[in-house]
Write a protein that binds this DNA or RNA. Structure first.
Lengths: 340, 340
DNA sequence: TTGAAAGCGTTACCAA
DNA sequence: TTGGTAACGCTTTCAA
């Protein structure tokens, strides 16, 4: 045993053939034993010999070879893009992934930031995933869906603000957030309502739909809605607060709690009473919102439990013919505190 | 053309053989053309025919078959675990991934929450990644590292609070945060220093090292350090504030800005002057910290630029014999505002 | 310039 | 109860 501790020699990766050789059986037998194949009865002694040989060599099966042979994978591919998901989504993904793993799928996240929307689906398709769940921020287009389907993806699912033709859709329509927030302001008698529109890129995709939802709610009461561009900086907020009275608003839906806190602080510094002169409502139900005075009223968002969705994926994989389905995931509720 | 729009027929996935057939050439030629093989000269007309055939069929190469033949992949596997990474890490990962993609690696995140630390490395190894970068929250042990190496991983790298024997290490030692924060308090003349210890699971791994760092700094000035368990709830903060004067502290490092805001609000509500009676410092440099009064002093953290690390991975892949290296990633600086 | 064929690691069918 | 063998899709060497 003159083995050096740090041998830089390239030992070849052990294969099932090596296991077979060491155990003194055929490769087929190794496969039967290691996969607990039900259709074949193998003696207990052989089983043990095979397992011991595998353990001794540190044998790990080669997923690529296996799936090549099988003609399909059990990989669920989750493209991700740069503005990283919020905690709500992260929890959702993490639970969805756990659910899929319970159903024996291998879940893999594939960072796709900066990839051309045309060749991103190609890159995913090379891995031959059996299912793809694409968040809204990745631009999955009908041609992209076609590429995936033709390369064997049996379930192509979008997860975002609106469905894409040809794919199943898990919809998280942000309009309900705006609708809910402004609905609350209207119920409190407000009629001249500002809606903060972040100028940053990240929240951008959310802001439009929330504004639309706000407008929809306002229409029910013939209230006025005023979009208010705002950068996430104190100076931007101060400028907005400085011209606040000229805007003639009695309430503001501040996009989310972070912007709400920023704006509320600026309004107060400008001598505007909250909620007396202007009511403020946010969204996200951040813990920090309770620390300001007045305590921040907000819209709490929840996503549907992911377990049924894992089962949906499984069903689609088993029955790929099905017509595109739509599932609404977003639930909202006002958390009434003091600011509105 | 009597093709139905929604044909549920299982069309087989096109292979390079199909492309060859349609183009009227051999499979070898297809491979040469689509891979721009330099060692072989192919006529322009043939090239065009092959490309057109591939496009017409929607051919996408099969990564598993390719890597099986090649004997190795270019996959970098990034295990992830449940308490999701903060924005700092997310940005880091996202840039690291972009850097690796530029070097022609395929980066894949593999959710490993709930997996047994013994079989998680096995699961990763099945994919035969050429490199694995394991964040601190995944328990990568020396046996796990061995499994990965034996299955062909040429670079095994840990990314977390401390190195693991046998693997290269990207170290983000949270001790420096505590050291920096308490160092600032000491410089301001404070000597009786509380250190908030979150009772939640998520920040748990950070809290210990930060406390250690705080103690290290305190030892330099023979100051007293008092750990203060705190849950992220107003009641918990209120209880702590109620017994504040009995603790006889003149400063507190509040773990991070969120806990700092929570505690600072509670202290003020209990009539304790900040920073007069007690200085408060957080960490993370959250935007929201500037909105409270007094504005929150904090420790800003930065991670090293990931591009050199992508190159490190590449180097390790090319020269797998190298001795384990250690790279310190975390940089800290005090952002001095009003609360300390 | 192109083609035939071998082989990567697996599994499943058919024989023994 | 076990073993031989073919096939999955691809690349590459060698030969034509």
């Amino acid at each position: 045993m003159s083995q050096l501790p740090n041998q830089p020699i390239e030992r070849p990766v052990p294969t099932s053939a090596d296991v077979a050789r060491l155990a003194g059986v055929s490769r087929a037998t190794v496969s039967y034993v290691l996969n607990n194949s039900a259709s074949v009865r193998i003696s207990e002694t052989t089983r043990r010999r095979v397992r011991e040989a595998a353990a001794e060599l540190g044998y790990v099966p080669h997923a690529a070879a296996r799936s090549l042979r099988a003609g399909h994978t059990r990989m669920v591919l989750l493209p991700t893009v740069d503005p990283p998901a919020g905690p709500l989504h992260q929890r959702f993904f993490s639970e969805l992934e756990a659910g899929l793993r319970r159903l024996d799928y291998t879940v893999v996240q594939y960072g796709s930031t900066g990839l051309d929307p045309q060749d991103a689906p190609r890159a995913w398709a090379e891995l031959r995933p059996v299912a793809v769940i694409a968040p809204g921020a990745v631009d999955l287009t009908p041609p992209g869906i076609a590429v995936l389907r033709r390369s064997g993806a049996r379930a192509v699912i979008t997860l975002g603000p609106r469905p894409v033709p040809g794919a199943h859709a898990l919809v998280m329509d942000q309009q309900v957030v705006g609708d809910c927030a402004v609905g609350h302001l209207l119920a409190g008698g407000r009629r001249r309502i500002g809606v903060v529109m972040p100028e940053e890129n990240g929240p951008d995709r959310l802001a439009g739909p929330r504004l639309t939802g706000a407008r929809r709610a306002a229409r029910r009461h013939t209230a006025r809605v005023e979009p208010l561009p705002l950068r996430y900086e104190e100076e931007s907020a101060a400028r907005l607060a400085a011209r606040w009275r000229s805007l003639d608003l009695d309430a503001v839906f501040a996009f989310d709690d972070a912007y709400a806190m920023l704006l509320m602080r600026a309004l107060q510094d400008a001598g505007i009473d909250v909620p007396g002169e202007t009511a403020v409502i946010g969204a996200d139900d951040l813990m920090l919102g309770r620390l300001l005075r007045p305590r921040l009223t907000t819209v709490r968002m929840e996503l549907a439990t992911p377990q049924p969705l894992a089962e949906l994926v499984d069903r689609l994989v088993k029955e790929p013919g099905a017509d595109p389905e739509r599932h609404d995931l977003l639930r909202v509720a006002v958390v009434r505190r003091e600011s509105a």
